[in-house]
Structures are given as C-alpha cells and as structure tokens.
Amino acid sequence: MAVFVCRLIPPRPDFAFTMSPAEAEDEAAARASTEADPAIRTGLGLRYETSPMLQAALHPSLVRIHRTTGT
C-alpha cells in the first residue's frame, strides 16, 4: 500500500484548494479514486494533481528517542 498526495485544483485561482493524503495500491488506483470524486464529476473544471507522498528514513537513534519521549 502506498500513500499519495491529492491536490484539488480549482478552475480559477481565487478558489480555495485542498490537499489530502490517499492510500492506494498504486498511482493508477489513486487517480481512479480522485476521478470518481463528485466534485470532479460535476464538470466544473476542477481537477486533481496526484503524486507519491515523500517518505523519510530515520536513523535508529532518532527512532529510539521518539519512542522514549513520545515526541
């Protein structure tokens, strides 16, 4: 399972946009999910940009600190 960032792009720059994470098997599945969004299906010019979410690797010493302090 992978995580993708889905950014809703409005038809005009004065509209607000949203970003949300989406968990999917692959990018094609994430795109299929955004294409099924009712906002997209209205045909008002909204669209999504979908890209893989960045991942980070932590050094083992940082993981140990996180587990001990909870921060």
Score class of each variant (00 low, 15 high):
14 D>R: 08
14 D>P: 03
15 F>E: 04
16 A>L: 05
16 A>T: 04
16 A>G: 02
17 F>G: 12
17 F>D: 04
17 F>E: 10
17 F>H: 05
18 T>Q: 05
18 T>D: 10
20 S>I: 03
20 S>T: 06
21 P>D: 01
22 A>E: 01
22 A>F: 00
22 A>S: 00
22 A>D: 00
23 E>P: 02
23 E>N: 00
23 E>K: 01
24 A>K: 02
25 E>F: 07
25 E>I: 04
25 E>R: 06
26 D>V: 13
26 D>K: 06
27 E>N: 11
28 A>W: 11
28 A>Q: 12
29 A>Q: 06
29 A>P: 04
30 A>T: 05
31 R>W: 13
32 A>C: 11
33 S>N: 09
33 S>C: 12
34 T>K: 12
34 T>H: 10
35 E>A: 14
35 E>W: 14
35 E>T: 14
35 E>G: 15
35 E>H: 12
36 A>D: 11
36 A>N: 07
36 A>V: 08
36 A>P: 11
36 A>E: 14
37 D>K: 11
37 D>E: 07
37 D>Y: 09
37 D>A: 11
37 D>V: 08
38 P>A: 10
38 P>S: 12
38 P>V: 08
38 P>W: 07
39 A>L: 12
39 A>E: 10
39 A>G: 09
39 A>N: 08
40 I>S: 04
40 I>Q: 03
40 I>L: 11
41 R>T: 07
41 R>C: 09
42 T>M: 07
42 T>I: 07
42 T>S: 06
42 T>F: 06
43 G>T: 02
44 L>G: 01
44 L>H: 02
44 L>A: 02
45 G>H: 00
45 G>F: 00
45 G>N: 00
46 L>K: 01
46 L>R: 00
47 R>I: 05
47 R>S: 08
48 Y>R: 03
48 Y>H: 05
48 Y>W: 07
49 E>V: 06
50 T>E: 03
51 S>R: 08
51 S>V: 06
51 S>K: 07
51 S>D: 09
52 P>A: 13
52 P>G: 13
52 P>W: 11
52 P>Y: 12
53 M>E: 14
53 M>N: 12
54 L>R: 15
54 L>Y: 13
55 Q>W: 15
56 A>F: 15
57 A>E: 14
58 L>F: 14
58 L>N: 15
59 H>S: 09
59 H>N: 15
60 P>R: 10
60 P>F: 04
60 P>K: 09
